[in-house]
Simulated scan of single mutants.
Amino acid sequence: MAPPDSPRWPLATELSGTENGKRTTDALPATYHYHEKAGKRAVGDPAEDTLAFLQRELSLGGLAGLMKHLWFAGAERPAMPLHSYVAMGREIVVLDRMDMHLLWANDGRLFVKPVPRFLLSPDFCQSNLQCPDGCTCGDPPANACRGVPRKVALGFLYTYACLISSETDFHVANEKRLLPRREDDQPIEWARWKTLARELLRMHEHDPGALHPRFRRAELRLSRLNTISRLTSIPLFNPYFRGRYNYGSLFRDNLAWMATTTVFVAVVLTAMQVGLATERLRGDATFQQASYGFTVFAILGPMGAFALVILYALFHLVKDLPSLLGARRKRTATGRAVSSAEPKTPA
């Protein structure tokens, strides 16, 4: 018995404004960045290998390995309208990474990935997000299988159907450049967007399995994802997303909470000192023991916390040292090669 054909692209609404006769690859970006290996970034042409581009562009990255722990980072619910985030004081930060879409940080930032132009072209999606005939979309998927990128793309578009539910959200999205513009640099029509959003909602109601399960939980808390990654990933203690790129910010952020904790400890110690001055608590053995224990903690706690911050910084320094030295050797070798290639000026 032949395996069943994979489902076809379920959306038929054209929003990209492409003219008839244009190639489907015209909806692709100019270039894309990817990592050939750890610490080595490269730039590629998406039109040369569209499948490789889509597998990277629609990849959930490290988030795919944390799927069973996402309950700790966010509730299972759809995304709120965009204007609600603005009213809450969230800063919408445009970041063109699928694995960072709808992640929010403690400082109020909400990372949002803009809608790529090619996902609003049914012809492109039908040609490039359609599995070959006979593909079973197994686990692990075959090299030619496009089931996972298709589910990620549909789940991603479904979040936008939730984010842009009214004309107010539509104007906010265009202001933030979250939606691609037409070829005449005009926003897409609101009526066309409504049609696509309703198609996505009907698809979600009739076939929830067509969407990747990551998008069942819209917003995810970045700090909790970092905690999950530190405890479950190999190597350990690596955050999901490193928001600091220098050691000064690392010490500044950690010293802030240590200073707050020190103030709280100082208030408690003052209250205990007042209690020991009273006749009722002066002879209470339990209160004496509690005061003794908390005093020792107040002395050793800040020292231990500061030592942990120092060790954490040294850990990352030792881990990053090989790549830093390698980059320095490479720059030195390049400089010597350029110097040797320069013509010698006669005396």
Results as ranks from 00 to 15, higher is better:
residue 94 V to R: 13
residue 71 W to P: 00
residue 138 G to N: 11
residue 111 F to G: 01
residue 106 N to Y: 03
residue 110 L to P: 04
residue 137 C to W: 04
residue 73 A to P: 12
residue 88 M to V: 01
residue 157 L to H: 10
residue 113 K to T: 10
residue 145 C to A: 02
residue 114 P to T: 08
residue 91 E to I: 11
residue 96 D to N: 13
residue 160 Y to E: 10
residue 91 E to W: 01
residue 161 A to G: 13
residue 92 I to K: 02
residue 125 C to G: 07
residue 58 L to V: 02
residue 96 D to K: 09
residue 86 V to L: 09
residue 74 G to M: 04
residue 145 C to R: 04
residue 118 F to V: 10
residue 105 A to I: 01
residue 120 L to F: 02
residue 111 F to W: 10
residue 130 Q to P: 03
residue 64 A to L: 12
residue 132 P to T: 10
residue 117 R to I: 03
residue 156 F to M: 03
residue 141 P to G: 05
residue 97 R to Y: 11
residue 72 F to H: 11
residue 126 Q to S: 12
residue 85 Y to A: 01
residue 104 W to E: 13
residue 104 W to C: 06
residue 74 G to C: 04
residue 116 P to I: 09
residue 134 G to A: 03
residue 116 P to Y: 05
residue 56 R to D: 14
residue 163 L to P: 08
residue 78 P to Y: 06
residue 159 T to S: 14
residue 77 R to K: 15
residue 126 Q to C: 00
residue 116 P to T: 11
residue 115 V to S: 03
residue 65 G to P: 02
residue 60 L to F: 03
residue 110 L to A: 07
residue 79 A to E: 09
residue 56 R to Q: 14
residue 75 A to Y: 02
residue 80 M to T: 11
residue 133 D to Y: 01
residue 140 P to F: 09
residue 136 T to W: 02
residue 131 C to H: 07
residue 138 G to E: 14
residue 150 R to V: 02
residue 103 L to M: 14
residue 107 D to H: 09
residue 62 G to Y: 01
residue 130 Q to L: 12
residue 144 A to T: 15
residue 122 P to I: 03
residue 83 H to S: 11
residue 108 G to Q: 05
residue 92 I to E: 01
residue 67 M to Y: 02
residue 128 N to A: 09
residue 138 G to V: 12
residue 55 Q to R: 15
residue 154 L to K: 05
residue 160 Y to Q: 09
residue 119 L to T: 07
residue 158 Y to C: 06
